[in-house]
Nucleic acid binder design. Structure first.
Lengths: 206, 206
DNA sequence: CGGCTTAGTGAACGTATGTTCACTCAAACC
DNA sequence: GGTTTGAGTGAACATACGTTCACTAAGCCG
């Protein structure tokens, strides 16, 4: 309509993206369980029935949003880890990265934080599964840090779990109060140091 | 109707409690933003209009549920702190208490965890405010522990915040997987020790 | 006893929901 | 270049929603 030349598949993909975007916007101040197919359609500018050409329910729309959000999250973690050769630098170097990622994709992080606990059952499950995978990856990454050889696998996992929880909490706060980014990051920085000092001192005490 | 002698106020209170209970049950697998006044009324066994005799909207019902849940939470913390004269005992002594409280009031803890991030705006705000108050209380409690004198107020708050986050996360997991209570508690125990060791070593490093 | 208060009723309203079906009409294909 | 495919349309449905209003009937109080 607007564009002269656009392949059929391209156009479909464009509408699909519009639906995903509209859903992110609509869920922003409630939850996926509270948005209706018709609201999404109206926001996109299509008729309710056209929705079914792309998803067969709001729930499967949610699963697509999980995938999309997780891609963003993995992108962040990859970037974080790539430029973090050492523990101390890990904290100082990666927190600003976390912040800038959250700033760049606020809706995706808000979506994960929210739907992880309040989404439709299958969406919740999908998010938790992904976070579990990420936690495991982080544990194996931490295991490569010099000085961590003495940690048992179990303790590595627990440490990774604490870190992930902390980052999720931080993302939650950044999404909620973007204006206080500096204060939130400073607080998390101190907390992560407490945490890692604890982790490093841990093996000498057990 | 059922009971012969029941004061008018008593009966009203009983219905009110039924409404609160029904709302907790209905929100259990979705969120407050997704339950309707009519669903609640049907669950309670009253006609939709009767709902307005007790609350003027689902949102204000939510605020009442926050109050109720927070009472339970404070009860737990009071009990935890009463029998925790020392740091080490604090962890070993209080985690089972946390677990038993979550087991006793699973719906209330699930409600807090969920609606904190996904509830109606005013409900979210209320929960966060209450958690902030509780964190502050915890910080002043921790300040009374021998050996914590060297902590700055700021660091005490950060430590308390970390502990509260951890407990919230634990509650979240206990609610989600009641069958794995033992494993979850063991994991949290180890994590809290890492955390407190970090906190205690912290002051000698800054 | 008799009037007053009030928790709960039941009908009615306009609107929003998910899903169905038959349809259009332009890009894709042989 | 004629046929097929499929994204988007528009009407229709049964059901659910929040809120209104006039009402009943039972506990309260002078």
């Amino acid at each position: 309509m607007v564009e002269v030349s656009e392949s059929r598949a391209d156009r479909k993909e464009r509408t699909r993206q519009s639906i995903l975007g509209a859903a992110l916007t609509l869920t922003a101040d409630s939850s996926l369980v509270a948005v209706s197919l018709r609201q999404v359609a109206k926001e996109v500018g299509i008729v309710p029935t056209a929705f079914y050409r792309h998803f067969d329910s709001v729930e499967s729309l949610g699963l697509a949003l999980v995938e999309e959000s997780v891609v963003a999250l993995r992108g962040m973690l990859r970037e974080v880890w790539r430029q973090a050769p050492e523990f101390r630098d890990f904290i100082d170097g990666s927190l600003p990265l976390v912040a800038s990622h959250v700033r760049a994709h606020p809706q995706h992080y808000a979506f994960i934080v929210r739907e992880r606990v309040a989404g439709p059952p299958r969406v919740r499950e999908a998010i938790r599964h992904e976070i579990e995978l990420i936690t495991r990856e982080l544990a194996t990454d931490v295991a490569r840090v010099p000085g961590s050889e003495a940690f048992s696998t179990e303790h590595l996992n627990l440490l990774a779990d604490l870190i992930v929880s902390s980052v999720v909490t931080t993302a939650e706060r950044l999404v909620d109060r973007p204006d206080q980014e500096e204060r939130i990051i400073a607080a998390t920085r101190t907390q992560l140091r407490m945490l890692l000092i604890g982790g490093l001192n841990w093996r000498s005490q057990r």
